[in-house]
């Protein structure tokens, strides 16, 4: 009888303890981390979507502007480089990795901007239906990228804040020692909003 009561009391303490933990924001840190990771996946998706548009775009431009070889090669090379830099969700705590990713993507943005600028010189290209469709898809994708980046920045702020503020800071320094703050995109304005492709 006594041992049973003792055991029951232990169970009760355990249960009440976990309720208290849940009430004190114990779940906030893993939840915020998962959310930030999901937003990162979205960022990568949208960059991938842009990369997927490029072969078609290059082929279309090539049909009208063969002599712009340098610009076309620059786009193809920048695309190859950008698609080779991938960041696993677990590497997001490393600012250097994130910077390498952003640099590669920004280089591609620059090359694309150049390609779009020279296409102004080719009236036939500019009135090509396929090119017009690709152009608006590219614009739309650039916009989705900036939305995804904004969402990621917000999610990372939430997560980092949950690690550094009460009550999360208690859990971060005890149970969740492996949960490191994630890197944000570098603060310079050019990186925060990807260069707009102007036509």
């Amino acid at each position: 009888m006594k041992t049973l009561l003792l055991r029951l009391r232990m169970v009760l303490v355990l249960v009440l303890g976990s309720l208290v933990l849940a009430g004190c924001g114990y779940n906030a840190i893993p939840t915020a981390q998962e959310n930030a990771k999901a937003q990162w996946a979205q960022v990568q998706n949208q960059y991938q979507r842009r990369a997927d548009l490029i072969p078609n775009l290059v082929a279309t431009v090539q049909g009208y502007a063969k002599q712009e070889k340098d610009v076309l090669t620059a786009v193809v090379e920048a695309r190859a480089k950008a698609t080779s830099v991938h960041i696993d969700a677990s590497q997001l705590t490393d600012p250097a990795k994130l910077k390498a990713f952003t640099d590669a993507q920004n280089q591609l943005s620059g090359a694309l901007g150049h390609l779009m600028a020279i296409s102004e010189n080719y009236p036939d290209l500019k009135s090509n239906q396929n090119f017009l469709a690709l152009q608006s898809q590219l614009e739309g994708t650039e916009n989705r990228i900036s939305v995804a980046r904004r969402d990621y920045i917000r999610a990372v702020r939430d997560y980092n804040l949950s690690l550094r503020t009460f009550p999360g800071v208690i859990w971060a320094s005890t149970f969740f020692r492996s949960y490191q703050p994630m890197a944000e995109f570098s603060a310079d304005a050019g990186a925060a909003t990807p260069p707009k492709v102007k036509f």
């Binding site: 979205q42 608006s136 614009e139 739309g140 916009n143 989705r144 900036s146 939305v147 995804a148």
Partner: peptide
Amino acid sequence: SSGGGGAS
């Protein structure tokens, strides 16, 4: 919600 689809 929206993720930035559409056109301007």
